[in-house]
Amino acid sequence: MEITITALKGVPLLEIRGEIDHNNCGALETALGEVLDHGTTVVLLDLSRVTYIDSGGICVLLAGLRRIRDHGWLGVMGPNHNVRRILEIVGLVADPGFQVFADRSEAEAALPETASVETIPPANVTPEGDRT
């Protein structure tokens, strides 16, 4: 599994590729935790290149959702048919704090125009030096 942290309209975006399982979900937990530590109101995960997810990965999503639910939402984009089925079975899709988008453009359309003002980029994509 590889994780790249970037942003979409100022909203933190975790691009994940590969298989998410019990063995590597700790890395996802760390990455998502660091993003959530910034108090962001929306976090997006690009799952379009995720080929597999097990209960370890689901637990990370559930824990992240629990942290953000009161003041925002967690969105995933592009899950394949099988990954989406698992998200449905565990009840994530039905959770009001969890959004599933078919693709990036659909996710982008759902983001508030003011998102970039409300959210802070995650630490590891903050530009080096002072650009302000």
């Binding site: 399982d21 019990h22 597999y52 097990d54 209960s55 370890g56 048919h81 099988n82 089925r85 698992i86």
Partner: peptide, 20 residues
């Protein structure tokens, strides 16, 4: 089929994770 293959991979992997 691909869907059943995915389900089996997940179920077998979960059973192994429990054992671990």
């Amino acid at each position: 089929d691909v869907e059943k293959m995915f389900d089996l991979k997940l179920a077998v992997s979960e059973a192994c994770a429990n054992a671990v």
